[in-house]
Structures are given as C-alpha cells and as structure tokens.
Design a protein around this nucleic acid. Structure first.
Lengths: 238, 238
DNA sequence: ATCGCAAAGTTGGTACTCCAACACTCGGCG
DNA sequence: CGCCGAGTGTTGGAGTACCAACTTTGCGAT
C-alpha cells in the first residue's frame, strides 16, 4: 500500500527520519539535488520537491550556491506574559531578563478604529483612536512587533511613555482589573516577514491582548512573535 | 526594482490581494493552472507554484479534479484555559461550552519517562510514569490531542478517571498550587496531521502544561490543537 | 424527464531542461 | 607565502510535457 505513495515522500520521510534520530545533526549537509536523484533513483523534480517540503517544515534550510543543511533548531525562548505586568514594555522586560540587549522604536499616531479594533475597544468604527506601533530588537535584530490601541483621551504623551499603562491609567482614575490574552498562530503578513526577517515557512504567534477596567476595555494590542524563536508562558496560581 | 521579482510572486500577490480585499469571497473558484498561464502570461511552472504557495498559506484549497477555491476561513474558537481548571477534561469542557457534542477516547499505560518528560517531572529518565493519551472529538471530528504524564504512584485507576486531577491529587494529600502553560507553534508531526485530519500547511498550537504542588511538578501534558480552528485564551485578574 | 455514461477539464505527481546568481575550491601568479 | 580568479557545484526560478485520478458537465438513450 505504501508502494503507491508519491516518490518524493519516500525521500522526505527518509531524510526526516535521519534528522529526528540524530543521524543527521544540526548543520549537517543534505545531499544535493543531483546526489538525491542518484541515491534514491528519482527524477530531479522529486528530489527538488522533497527538499522544498523539508524546507517548508523548517527542518532544513537551503543556501543558494552552497547546499541544504539541517537547520539549527533555535531554542524557544520563553516569554512570561504575567511576570512583568506593570512595565512600560513587558515584552522588552522579559527579553532583557534573558540577557539580551533590547532596544525598541515606537511611533504613536491617531488612526480610525476600523471594524476589528472597534469591536475590541467597544467603540464605533469611525472613532479615532491612538495607535502606537512598536518594533522590539534584541542585539539589533528584530524580535517582536506590537501595535497598541487606546482611546485617544488616554493616549500617552511622549513624556508619559516611560510609565506603564497601569500607572498612566490610574492617573485618569482608571483601575485595570483584568488582562485577557488570546494566542493564535498564522502565516506572517508580507510586511511582518519583512520586518521580522522571517525565513520562509515560519509562522508567527499572534497575541491579542486587552486591558479591562471592569467591563470596559481600555487598551488592546496585537503582538506578533516569530514562532520559531519564542514560546509564550502563562502561569496561574490556584 | 520589483521587476526582478520572481514571476510566480506577481501571481501570488495579485490573488492574495483579491482575497484580502474581498474581490474573491470564500468558496470562490481560483482560475485553473491553464487559465492562470493565459491570464498572467506565465509558464505552467509559475502558475502551479503560485497555487501551491497560496495553498500552503491556507488561503486557498485545491480539490483534485475540480479546482482551487478560496478557503472558508473557519472561525477561531476560543479555548479559555482558566475557566475550567477543576474538571476531568478542561479541553472538553471548553468545547462543550461552545455547544459542541464532545466525546473523547483515552488510554492509559505505563511508559518510560525519557529525557523530555524526565526534565518536566523532575524524575530520572529511566523512571516509569503513567502516560494517558486522549483524543477529543467534536461531533465526531477530531479536535484535539493530549498526552498526560503523571508519576505512576498517583496514576488514575479507571474509576478515578472521572474526577479531576485536582480532586485526585488531594486524595493523596497533594494540593495543586500552580498551573504553568507554555504555548508554541510548530508543524504537525505526521501522526498528528493524520489524527487531526489537518489540511497541508496548517500549523498546530502546542501547549505544554504542568501542574505544580509547591516546587514539585505532579503532572505534565502536551496538548496539540489545530492552529486554523482554535485560539487559546488566558485571562488574568489584576 | 431522468438516468447513465463519455468527454472535457483540473489537480497533483513526475521527468527533463536551461539559466542566473552565488559559494567553494584549488592552482597559478605575484 | 598570500592572494586572486577561473572552474565547478549548488540553489532557485522558469518552461514544457505526459499521465493518473478525480470531478463536472452535457449529451444521448431510455
């Protein structure tokens, strides 16, 4: 029955097995297209397809002019979402605690809410909110994108920005009572691939976070994280 | 500058744009390979490659003999991780609350811990632990896989199984004090693709959960969730 | 009007080919 | 001894072609 399987799958499965069981260690070269065609007695199309599938799975990486290599599986750095609740940039705090030199740019501007943000902030679609975009970098390399939305009356002025959201809100007499985050995975948008310098085939974790004051949302943000480098950690005391 | 871009990307971007801005609605047919070659004046390779890329992104789906269609983006159902803490199967409880008829199979057996579980349960690699595999189904279709590991002395006997972990543990005088979950995204293993009936290109969310009693881990599990159908929601009171 | 079947269209697998851009190696020249 | 450059190998883009398996459609027979 396995005889009717596509030929390229035979190659994929054989190489995958060798990577999984450690026969091929990270960094090890994969046979080239030409070598695969000879070794497995398949056409170039099959060899090529096999390599592309393995690359899409993130198991190997192709370098033009050089060859395909077993991909070094980068450690998944944990982002502890609750550990730095009251911090101007909780993302950065967690990254710093891993010993990275974290820098970030941000830019704030008014923007129309639009359907998605309108729903999340419980305002009208045409309402103008304050949108702040962040780019976080570790040792110069981009690590995370975040876009935060707040009702314009609470918006941070430049001097305020160093203070955390919780502090800023309490200045308006608003007490944050709950933070809700939902995590999903998806394909990066082209701009995100660009900004985060993502290899092909890497998904992102998209965290949608909302700060609540009672039953009223006061801030919501989208946090986009390279799925091959980070995992998101939540801990809940009983 | 964009003139030197690969040809197939022109096709990909044009179709992607049409899907994003609603020109092509979910379910709408994508031009066939032959039609694309004519429409965009490209070779069959480029047309084919464009379709494969879009399919890998989950934007379209190919049906043999019929054509490619804009994929119905399934609603992302939320899984509220903290809402059903003390329940035999919190996964199932959350799914049920969405009005699904949830059933599950499980099978328990002793197994050697191995390096990963040994680290997570703080036991020796060669120690035997109790491993329970779950398959959750909603209206018959597989929704989630979970594998739970416990030290063998706490292991559930069949009658116990209906009781939650928290209840079972307290019978042993153990009080769960904390639950830690870390969420990551990755390509499904072949067995997972099979068991969850995942279309090509869909990633999974992998939740690694550990129940702690003080500084001692008493249970750890891996929960595998189709990334195209679920998002995981955490809420934290301040 | 309905049923069944054949023809046409479509995907996905496979093979072969050509080429540009790039990496690597090795030998020869300064 | 060191450096440069040519030759060789590799990836990734692109084209063409053939075929099996499948779906859809439409026509002809009942």
């Amino acid at each position: 029955m396995a005889t009717s399987d596509p030929v390229y799958l035979r190659v994929v499965e054989d190489i995958r097995r060798q990577i999984n069981d450690g026969t091929l260690l990270p960094g090890a070269p994969i046979p080239s297209r030409a070598q695969l065609t000879r070794k497995y007695q398949v056409g170039e199309t099959a060899a090529r397809h096999a390599l592309r599938v393995l690359a899409a799975e993130g198991l190997i990486i192709g370098r033009v002019g050089s060859g395909h290599y077993v991909r070094e599986q980068p450690e998944l750095s944990p982002l502890h979402r609750w550990r730095f609740l009251d911090h101007p940039a909780p993302f950065a705090a967690d990254l710093q605690s891993q010993g990275r030199r974290v820098t970030w740019d941000w830019h704030s501007e008014p923007a129309e809410a639009g359907p998605d943000i309108a729903r999340r902030l419980r305002v009208d679609e045409s309402v103008t909110v304050s949108r702040t975009r962040y780019v976080f970098r570790g040792d110069g390399k981009p690590l995370q994108l975040a876009t935060s939305y707040e009702p314009i009356e609470f918006a941070a002025h430049s001097e305020d920005e160093r203070r955390s959201l919780v502090t800023r809100m309490s200045a308006h007499g608003i007490k944050i009572t709950e933070i809700v985050e939902s995590v999903r995975t998806r394909v990066p948008r082209p701009t995100e691939s660009d900004a985060l310098d993502l290899p092909a085939g890497v998904h992102v974790l998209h965290v949608e976070r909302t700060h609540w004051a009672g039953d009223r949302p006061v801030e919501t943000s989208d946090i986009v994280i390279p799925g091959d480098r980070f995992q998101v950690v939540y801990s809940m005391p009983m």
